[in-house]
Design a binder for these strands. Structure first.
Lengths: 191, 191
DNA sequence: CGCCCCATGTAAGACGTTACATGATTGA
DNA sequence: TCAATCATGTAACGTCTTACATGGGGCG
């Protein structure tokens, strides 16, 4: 369906554009948050915006009224909204957990606004499921690394990864509990 | 001094080449570990190796004796060794901690073989120093996000980052303690 | 003999980085 | 009026992705 594959930066922009913004606004957000890893340079953002517009996922309208200067405000089109939702709802695999964790967290951050709390909860469950086998895989690698031939810094480095995924696993449970609490508040105490 | 800037993949290869290997060997390691995020495709690795060789950082020699088939074994040149050391010894800044953590951990993993345990310890201390202000920065962002206008998934996403850096901080202390223990063992109990 | 794995490569295209360019507005 | 910031772009360059190509070796 999607004619061209969208790179990570494109999806980050789509997610941000759930609130209509100019390219400059987006750049500011990108450079002031951890999203700067998706590039905050104009040479990346403006071409990316034009590609998204070319593909009909966003549309820009010039704003003159605000007295300042020609500013292009971009908004998601219906097609853009559905593309964003589809990206967020993508299944989470063990491989993703290993190499695209940043992207997964970005999708999660956008999930509630784009698709509601149920989708966020679903993502958390999916993430938790992918995490278990991945952690097991890492622990197996640790067994291999226990040979004294392996330098300690390499072993510690792997240990750092394991700890970080353990902490992530704890976070998923914490986040799920948080959503449960919220749900009870909204639907009235049914104790 | 270095004529061309070396991308992350190049340094990953340099580090791996502390043990002489063929391009195929490297690919296998890359795809079977978390280093696959530096790309495990031949279209990236072989050109990268050629660039490193062009810049005099590695040298490849054909091996025929093993009876199998034409295989190029690459080794670090003295220039390559010093480039690798210099990369590992780079100072760790708050910004690095935010956007290049993966690279930092890779440098640490290589540090002991390349420069000895003292360098690894120095990296850990440098990392710990950079971590404190970065964590503070994240906590300040959390204050901003406490507004109810911010969707919970976005807040949780930031919380995940904070926890992950807290866990990293604990790991640095654990790793430093591990090196201290090692040091005592080697230099004989001076209790 | 055919098939799959070893081991190496190449070509097209898309993308990001870097650096520069442009003009209009605000503040000193 | 000078500098800085706002807001947008463009061009060159290098690199990665994807997909394909090549040829020998072992195995059934």
């Amino acid at each position: 369906m999607t004619p061209t594959k969208i790179p990570a930066l494109g999806y980050a922009l789509l997610g941000m554009l759930q609130k209509p913004s100019s390219g400059y606004d987006l750049r500011k957000v990108f450079s002031s948050t951890s999203m700067k890893s998706y590039s905050d340079s104009p040479g990346a953002i403006y071409p990316a915006l034009r590609r998204l517009e070319r593909d009909g996922l966003i549309r820009g309208t010039v704003e003159e009224s605000s007295g300042l200067r020609r500013r292009q405000i971009f908004r998601l089109t219906p097609k853009g909204v559905s593309e964003l939702k589809q990206w967020i709802a993508l299944p989470i695999t063990r491989e993703d957990v290993g190499s695209n964790l940043k992207t997964i967290m970005l999708r999660f951050a956008f999930s509630e606004t784009a698709m509601g709390a149920e989708a966020s909860v679903a993502m958390l469950k999916s993430l938790d499921s992918a995490l278990t086998p991945y952690l097991q895989h890492l622990r197996e690698q640790m067994q291999v690394m226990m040979s004294p031939a392996v330098p300690m810094s390499a072993r510690l480095s792997l240990e750092c990864g394991i700890r970080s995924y353990e902490s992530l696993s704890e976070w998923t449970h914490y986040a799920l509990a948080t959503y449960e609490k919220e749900g009870r508040k909204k639907s009235g105490g049914k104790s």
